[in-house]
């Protein structure tokens, strides 16, 4: 059992690295979708004894939204804005990979030091969630295209989800649903914003938004 948890967590870590290391936006979106699905499966493996109907429902919603709805929305807005690649990010891909390996080490170290109220099934869940949050932030900070930033935001939320998972589903369903709704709104709004930015300016470089300031 632990082998599978470890394998899943490693896969999740690898999805983060792949996200930060690849330039093709469609690949990034697919990777985030995969991450969502994997995250949906994770609670079933970590806490199989607590698999109540509520938990299963939560997993299902996670998989549907993060694995299907969001990616679909994002792929659509990618097509309408006809952007295929992230060009010339602030931090190059190899360097980003290097930085994220450093972040991984940092997350591992922090995960070992963080005082937690309850013992965990796998010692890797907390580092994973911290790492995911950091990678999301890195993507938001280092990329230029609005789409990549949305992806970074999604990944960050995935990290928060994993962190909640580590605390054994103690939080009420409502909170989780609230977060999901929040993200949904964010993706939706950003999608619209991207669409409009694209229509007005013919590109979605957020870098160039600074030209708007007075």
């Amino acid at each position: 059992m632990e082998l599978w948890i470890d394998a899943l967590i490693v896969l999740l870590i690898l999805t983060n690295l792949k996200l930060i290391g690849s330039s093709r936006l469609s690949a990034c979106i697919r990777i985030v979708a995969l991450q969502g699905v994997l995250l949906g499966i994770l609670p079933g493996l970590v806490n199989p004894d607590q698999m109540t109907l509520r938990a299963i429902l939560l997993s299902a919603i996670t998989i549907v939204f993060k694995g299907m709805v969001f990616p679909w929305l994002l792929l659509r807005s990618m097509r309408t804005s006809s952007v295929r690649r992230e060009m010339e990010p602030f931090i190059g891909y190899s360097t980003s990979m290097l930085i994220s390996v450093g972040l991984l080490a940092l997350a591992m170290w922090m995960g070992g030091r963080l005082p937690l109220p309850i013992p965990l099934k796998s010692p890797l869940v907390v580092p994973l969630s911290l790492f995911t949050i950091m990678v999301g932030l890195l993507a938001i900070v280092s990329r230029k295209k609005a789409l990549s930033q949305v992806l970074g935001y999604l990944v960050m939320e995935n990290g928060i989800y994993a962190f909640g998972l580590a605390l054994a589903l103690k939080e009420p369903l409502l909170v989780e649903l609230g977060t999901l709704l929040d993200v949904f709104m964010a993706v939706f709004v950003m999608g619209i914003a991207i669409f409009h930015i694209n229509r007005e300016f013919d590109h979605i470089d957020t870098d160039l938004l600074s030209a708007l300031k007075g």
Partner: peptide, 11 residues
Amino acid sequence: AILAIVLVLKG
């Protein structure tokens, strides 16, 4: 490789 060694030292 780094992931492997970090995992093994952690787990």
